[in-house]
Design a protein around this nucleic acid. Structure first.
Lengths: 150, 150
DNA sequence: TATTGTTATACTCTATAACTATA
DNA sequence: TATAGTTATAGAGTATAACAATA
């Protein structure tokens, strides 16, 4: 038996959450690759929601990336017509970021495929636990990101 | 509001789990540093349970590390008298790994401190959700590591 | 002078390949 | 010849520092 099975000592949360996260990311990879997206590219598309963002720095912070890291990602997505990056007329240092219709379509398709895979995993939880798990996960996520739980 | 708050689209599991894992690890750091442990050092101590392991390669696999990655870690822990690493008399290529009493003490102390912090976080969940969350997390972890759920 | 975006550089972490010793 | 452990090297990913444009 391994330490997780339960010999009185519960495993560290981090020792459960981190490997689970790695596995989820690994499961995403083939789906992303099919659509020619890297993880960072998908993160950008996912975060660039309906309304545009005003600076690249803000976007970088939102997805926990360095501002220099996402530049090549934005270059790629822009060149593929998935997002627009135009100088803000109000402040021409900043770049207004927004998804193109194709970008939105791709994001939705990939998200659906990713979540479809995740649903299969979640489906193995007892229905009773499942909702509580998702709710708790969201709560802990919010707290961990410094946002107060409701 | 952000995408997590709930505008009909649930966030990807990975987008919740991975950042949560990062935050949990970050929260562990100060505790580990206090005891002069790196994350890998703690992973080794945590996994080296009561009974010894027969090879370093097995240990490396168990903690999802490359066999070459843990060598410096083992060197350090051994030099500090926290673990024993002696050639297996049966097959002198292999190294039998076991914790010393001090190693076990340190592991227990650090684990207690780490889990104490985690309990504070878990304490912010409704009691009703909390057990379901832990149970689900362990189940999903096991599945993600290729072990069949019960 | 401060800020946005960018480029070039350096650094950290990790895996690969090559070596020693045992079998 | 195959395997366990080790060392040295190369590679990927990341952040830091320096720069150009704009305010």
């Amino acid at each position: 038996m391994n330490a997780v099975a339960g010999d009185g000592v519960r495993p560290d949360l981090a020792a459960l959450v981190v490997p689970l996260g790695r596995a989820l990311m690994a499961a995403e990879q083939p789906v992303l690759a099919e659509h020619g997206l890297t993880m960072w590219g998908y993160a950008v598309l996912s975060h660039l929601d309906e309304r545009p963002l005003r600076t690249q720095t803000a976007l970088a912070e939102a997805i926990h990336a360095d501002k220099t890291r996402i530049i090549a990602v934005l270059d790629d997505l822009e060149s593929r017509g998935l997002l627009n990056r135009r100088p803000d007329p109000q402040d021409r240092r900043a770049r207004l970021l927004s998804l193109t219709p194709e970008g939105r379509r791709l994001r939705d398709a990939v998200r659906a495929a990713v979540q479809n895979g995740e649903e299969r995993l979640l489906g193995r939880l007892p229905v009773a636990d499942r909702e509580a798990f998702l709710r708790s996960l969201i709560t802990l996520y919010e707290i961990s990101q410094g946002r107060p739980a409701r």
